[in-house]
Write a protein that binds this DNA or RNA. Structure first.
Lengths: 145, 145
DNA sequence: CTCCACCACTTGCAAAAAGCAAGTGGTGGG
DNA sequence: CCCACCACTTGCTTTTTGCAAGTGGTGGAG
């Protein structure tokens, strides 16, 4: 299940991105790493959306295979594996932020978030600050739970 | 196949967005409308990625069901249907632009595009101009064959 | 050392979705 | 009336997802 035979449907960069990320789980894992600072299998498993273990394994392998994340044995606890974002993965933060912004306004439930999101859409500097903060948080060392 | 029983996996706005758009085709249809100015079933069908007719029908119905696109009979030719983006759909342009930018740098093939994309990542004004131009092109009337 | 909890997976199977090719009803021009 | 064309349907096979149970490897407690 976890093998890697990615075939590109076309040369279009959007299509290429979707070939790697176009499903319901891959970007959620990246979200977990970026927004919730998760680094461990069991942490992803505990997320609200309820991913199954076999799907999680598969997605982690694919994301590693396409160079978005890297997996290493945890130096502090050799029983577990640390998943971290690569530069390629960190570069997905703007995508995540736009998806979040859109979702808050157009796919969400609460109106509080909506207003905050609308503000972010108009105030580009604010958005840039959010992206920068998230990026810095990801390029620094984990710092653990 | 085209019914609408979207269940939300969680309240997270990113998750909500992916509930609506998290597959390999939905955003490609939006791309066709935004970037390639396509408005007709047969046009989407002719895209390089090669979507099947039943999948296309399903995605168009879902996108309509979630208010991202609207379908109307073509006033100029009653044999065909015009698909247009709603405000909610137009608001996806930034997501598309980020996906394109990321794809060009990290998932693409050519290095020419890569350089242009890197420039866009550094020059925020340029990116904003791209987004504005695309948005304007979408909110104006089709003007087609 | 043994035992045991815990970790990241596997495996097996059923259900859902995608993909393919062929067919269908409605429309308008010739 | 006929025919080409449009946006779909339908039937079928293949692939992916989802769920539950199981597995091998590790390290700490006793």
């Amino acid at each position: 299940m976890g093998s890697n035979a990615e075939t590109r449907r076309s040369g279009c960069p959007i299509s290429c991105s979707l070939d790697l990320l176009g499903d319901k789980w891959s970007l959620l894992i990246v979200r977990d790493m970026v927004m919730l600072r998760k680094h461990y299998f069991k942490e992803f498993l505990a997320s609200a959306e309820g991913i199954a273990t076999n799907i999680l394994t598969d997605r982690l392998n694919r994301l590693e295979g396409s160079g978005i994340i890297s997996k290493q044995p945890d130096p502090e606890n050799r029983r577990q594996i640390v998943y971290t974002l690569t530069e390629k993965g960190v570069a997905l933060i703007p995508v995540l932020v736009e998806l979040m912004s859109w979702g808050k306004i157009y796919a969400g439930t609460t109106s509080v978030d909506r207003d905050k999101a609308r503000r972010m859409q108009q105030d580009r500097r604010y958005k840039q600050r959010v992206i920068r903060e998230l990026t810095e948080g990801c390029t620094s060392t984990p710092g653990r739970s």
